[in-house]
Design a binder for these strands. Structure first.
Length: 643
RNA sequence: GCCGUUGUAGCUCAGUGGUAGAGCACUUCCUUGGUAAGGAAGAGGUCGAGAGUUCGAUUCUCCUCAACGGCUCCA
């Protein structure tokens, strides 16, 4: 037996170590400081405890707080710490599962007959702090299934027993720290002492195993950090996110509203919000005209037959808003849940020549979908919304070019609106389960290759997910990052082989034979509602100058300067600058404050001196006084800011 | 849809088994002011809707609607 093993370090160098060395020992060999920071290690792509001996040649990486896997191990261990605290404070609690999540961790807990409310969280936090200070080691233990069953039978924990049932003997491990033992695959951080800052955030109900037929457990959410400072930064981040909440800003700036009488999930656009929405629409319409789209308008309802043909009736009919009936004939109509069937009818209404392809049919189509009431939220999840929808009918060979062209459009949209960072997800077939997809292998391969090549040639950051494609075709989804680092899914491009078949769409090719077109669904914004919701949070209500409802507030110092102010507004409007004159009998400080609160980008203060010299005093929102300018200088300055 | 929390003036929120209050906003008057809130007065509420218990309910109970936090779902 060779007692040495070769370990490949992240920089590619291979070093020899004695067999059975632990990652922690390797870390200590490098530096004590590093060893202190080690949370776990990655051995050949498997994340493991830093105390587990390495038995064979492998690639090797130490994981710290700076690694994603380091964080999730940290939070997983924190969930165990919380469970320990819960057992100490509430003897007899039953534990479900306690995984790490994107930001922190949770544990599902059955408190039995005890009522649990959020005001008990600080008590648990304090207990966790106390247990963390004990700096107990997380100890891994391999156990037999029989032993595991006996342990949790004695503990009377039905959830863990159910989990064990699904596990294979020989694969079962326990982790123990202090007085707490949990069924767990691991890995864990070295000891509880690494956890310095703890915050339990909220509680919610969650069904055991996500199934509503099962008992509902109490889910406790928390987050922890190795440094107190990081916790306070995270809490500040949450505060900032709260401040940017589009529901709050939408109310404050009077952009949109909801009404109980109109119905939940049905946003009502107020004048200021409508201005933003219409400008976005106008912008997109122009971009599309420039790119060879044709604009159409189709009705908000369609006969049941349309959706029987499209297949949506079978799939979603009973989960939709129920049909509207004509009073005399009893014909059934559905509110349209998407625009594509209508657009298929447009394509099919007369014979088409290959010379017409690609045919790009665009519509700002308002659609209605019955979303479960509990899922509705602000503008991001609604029951009625308008897509900047278009369907491109083309040949399989044209897919790649069309994809590139839509990618360019999305790129331009993101730049125009200040989303500087975005990635795309390519969703392809599940290679092991090709039967569930419609369309020929050949066409799928061509489309998948087209998407991959199109994104590569555009130099995009992408992630590829197998098995995430829709049954009717592969797709590309765009995720943007907002100003405080959150990711949102907005635009989408999807290939569709299904609808052209269902609607029996064809075109006459150059060789005078009938061919089936491919259809591409695409929406760069996704929906105007969701897009504006995300945009509000991205810019915190400070919209790009071209989009903001009022660009300039003219603030006369007293009513003596009202006429001059109004003629000034008139002058600006002639140069396509929109604004208002605040002619209330208020002091200038007050007018400035109110304009600042309304986030109007420019304020022009008009008093004695300005009127005499035909000047304006310019103040920038959030920045302050810029000094005096001639009106035409201001316009020039303004136009510069516009670009 | 499910679980939990919440619902009082346009907004943010106090409050009570004896039919309600603050700040801001609004209206009127005074103030004509120079870079983030001038002063005074006034008006404004079926205490989310419905039912019940009670002499009496905004308060207690039930039911319903909506918002929020999750779960589940998403053409």
């Amino acid at each position: 037996m060779n007692s040495k093993i070769n370990i490949t370090l992240p920089d590619g160098t291979v070093r020899e170590f004695p067999k059975g060395i632990t990652p922690m020992e390797i870390a200590s060999g490098i530096s004590e400081g590093l060893a202190r920071n080690v949370l776990a290690a990655k051995i050949d792509n498997e994340v493991r405890d830093s105390s587990r001996p390495i038995e064979k040649d492998c690639s090797f990486k130490l994981l710290t707080w700076d690694d994603k896997e380091g964080k999730s191990t940290f939070w997983h261990s924190s969930a165990h710490l919380m469970a320990e605290a819960l057992e100490a404070l509430y003897p007899g609690v039953k534990l479900g599962i306690g995984p790490p999540i994107e930001n922190g961790f949770y544990y599902d807990v059955d408190f039995g007959d005890r009522a649990f409310t959020a005001d008990q969280l600080p008590k648990i936090e304090a207990k966790m702090q106390e247990l963390a200070k004990q700096d107990n080691t997380y100890v891994r233990e391999e156990v037999s299934k029989k032993y595991a069953v006996r342990y949790f039978s004695e503990k009377k924990d039905p959830y863990k027993l159910e989990l064990i049932e699904g596990l294979e003997d020989g694969q079962i491990t326990f982790y123990k720290q202090g007085n707490f033992t949990d069924l767990c695959r691991g890995p864990h951080i070295p000891s509880t002492g690494k956890i310095k800052a703890i915050k339990l955030l909220n509680i919610a109900g969650a069904y055991w195993r996500g199934d509503e037929k099962n008992k509902q457990l109490t889910r406790l959410y928390g987050i922890t950090f190795p440094k107190a400072k990081e916790l306070s930064e995270y809490l500040e981040f949450l505060e900032e996110a709260k401040k940017r909440d589009h529901r709050k800003i939408g109310k404050e700036l009077e952009l949109f509203m909801f009404s109980e009488k109109v119905g939940q999930g049905l946003p009502i656009w107020l004048p200021r919000g409508t201005m933003i929405r219409e400008r976005l629409e106008r912008y997109m319409r122009q971009e599309q005209i420039d790119r060879g789209y044709v604009q159409v308008v189709t009705p908000h309802i369609g006969k049941k037959d349309l959706y029987v043909t499209s297949g949506h009736y079978d799939k979603y009919g009973s989960d939709s808003f129920q049909p509207i009936r004509t009073p005399v004939e009893g014909e059934e109509f559905y509110l349209k849940p998407m625009n594509c069937p209508h657009h298929c009818e447009i394509f099919g209404h007369r014979p088409r020549s290959y010379k017409e392809l690609p045919l790009r049919v665009a519509e700002f189509g308002t659609v209605y979908r019955y979303e479960q009431s509990g899922e509705l939220s602000g503008l991001t999840r609604v029951r009625g919304f308008t897509q900047d929808d278009a369907h491109i009918f083309c040949t399989p060979e044209q897919i790649k070019f069309e994809f590139q062209s839509v990618i360019d459009l999305v790129n331009d949209v993101c730049n125009k609106l200040g989303f500087n960072e975005y990635t795309a997800q390519i969703s392809l077939r599940d290679p092991d389960n090709r039967e569930k997809y419609i369309g020929s292998d050949e066409n799928w391969e061509m489309a998948e290759r087209a998407i991959i090549e199109a994104t590569e040639e555009k130099g995009m950051k992408t992630v590829t997910e197998y098995g995430e494609a829709a049954f009717y075709g592969p797709k590309l989804d765009f995720m943007v990052k907002d100003a405080i680092g959150r990711s949102w899914q907005l635009g989408t491009i999807q290939v569709d082989y299904n609808l052209p078949i269902r609607f029996d769409l064809e075109y006459i090719d150059a060789d005078n034979t009938k061919k089936r077109p491919v259809m591409i669904h695409r929406a760069p914004f996704g929906s105007l509602e969701r897009f504006i919701g995300v945009l509000i949070e991205h810019c915190g209500g400070n919209f790009p100058l071209w989009l903001t409802p009022d660009q300039v507030a003219i603030l006369p110092i007293s009513e003596k300067f009202e006429d001059f102010s109004k003629s000034l507004l008139n002058y600006l409007e002639k140069h396509d600058i929109r604004g208002l004159v605040d002619d209330r009998a208020e002091k200038i400080g007050r007018k400035i404050r109110d304009s600042e609160v309304k986030k109007i980008p420019f304020m022009l203060i008009i008093g004695e001196k300005e009127q005499e010299n035909n000047e304006v005093s310019v103040r920038l929102h959030g920045k302050g006084d810029l000094g005096k300018m001639k009106p035409e200088e201001f316009i020039e300055y303004f136009k510069k800011q516009l670009n």
